[in-house]
Design a protein around this nucleic acid. Sequence first.
RNA 1: GGCGACAUAGCCAAGCGGUAAGGCAAGGGUCUGCAAAACCCUUAUUCCCCAGUUCAAAUCUGGGUGUCGCCUCCA
Length: 464
Amino acid sequence: MKIYNTLTRKKEEFVPLEDGKVKIYVCGPTVYNYIHIGNARPLCVFDVLRRYLEYRGFDVTFVQNFTDIDDKIIIKANEEGVTSKEIAEKYIKEYKIDVEGLFVKEATIHPKATENIGEIIKFIKTLVDKGCAYESGGDVYFSTKSFDEYGKLSRQPLDDLELGARIDIDERKREPMDFALWKKAKEGEPFWNSPWSEGRPGWHIECSAMSRRYLGDTFDIHAGGQDLIFPHHENEIAQSECANGAPFARYWMHNGYINVDNIKMSKSAGNFFTVRDVAKTYGYEPIRYLMVTTHYRMPINYSIEVIEQCKASLQRIYTCRENLDFLLTNAKSKDEKQEQELKTKMAAHKDAFIKAMDDDLNTADGITAVFELVSDINRLINTDSSKELITFCADLLDELCAVFGLLQNRKKETVSDEVMALVEKRTKARQEKDWALADKIRDELYSMGVTLEDTPQGIKINQK
RNA sequence: GGCGACAUAGCCAAGCGGUAAGGCAAGGGUCUGCAAAACCCUUAUUCCCCAGUUCAAAUCUGGGUGUCGCCUCCA
């Protein structure tokens, strides 16, 4: 498999540190609000990465943190007159609802910053001892000048950064580009004891400390949004490589943004759609589909039209899958010889799928393979097919869709007696060629959310 | 000022030197009592523009144009 590595700006063959095992760290949310669909992109994309690696037989350890102490959380807590902890807990809960709706697998480990304060302090101590960080008025700052390779991920030369910097001149810092590892608490802010002051950790240090704790000094993949490249990921590299004296993440993957009217979606710009709201109208799955339909490094321009298209596209896959189930109930049980040929044809789509996904997770081509499989199924499968062939197709479709986390919402509802009675009444009317009555019953069922299809194999009942 | 991304049909979107995938939408047809679903056919002589390299360019090179992003919290 090839992965585009932001560190080298090239597609590289992915070789894990330890054979058959992959260690991944993805920056998680700061929990002070509902997530928007821009936040959902890395969640979905790197969940697909994880599922694909697992599909290819890797044992994946997936760590994603919660930033549950931060200026924004404190501000929100003050606004609402509750504690930071209450805000964090509330939005972790809401986050989990959305993530579950999106069928994102739960992380192997989901550490919280506030549960790793000791680890973080230990980490900062090491940096201070090594001369990479300094205390100043109760705060602790990382000295960017102490790390020669600072800027290697974002390819930003330090001097040029300072030239155009819009950062505040802070007298507590030696250099403008230095960043806080530990912040002394102001009046009324939550704090933990440390050798420097009563305070709280800075944002960047959390990820360095937690990734080391759960994945070690060096691990395979570190992922997140492109906006984290600088300064967040750059700072993580500086902290971790200074403290550990070992390379940090080996592959860096960054997803593109989701835009609205071509402008980046963000909470500060106010042009965002929450996952919750979009899901309310369209369901969660079209959001997930949207992420998969475009290559993860490309920008996506979100609009109502686009999400509606996603929903319609998804329906094609669902219909195919439901038709397979329906056909199964009418299938012949014997296997035809020519079916082996069909199976080979179907399986070729799996090869195309793997080829696409191996190429830096080309999900757009991957989903094309799924659609081509759907087309072949629609064309070749009918009531003369054997149970075995139909099952083979259904399993293959399920298998590929599962990597995307799609086709996970298939309902197995039973048809109510009321509906059944109406269907039977309509069948009788049709036998008597009383089309007016038959259509009236069909309309009635439609208003109940039930659509009927008269197929050569019998009546297919679809319930909404 | 520094660094970077993107531009392909009505919409979305692949393509990475060999003559434009796939999905949505639209139109026509087959099937159907009518539908639905499905299938078949149609919809970019051309990939922002201009040069260049090549037998061959959407793809490579150079130069433009437009849009966006990072350098401040941000996925």
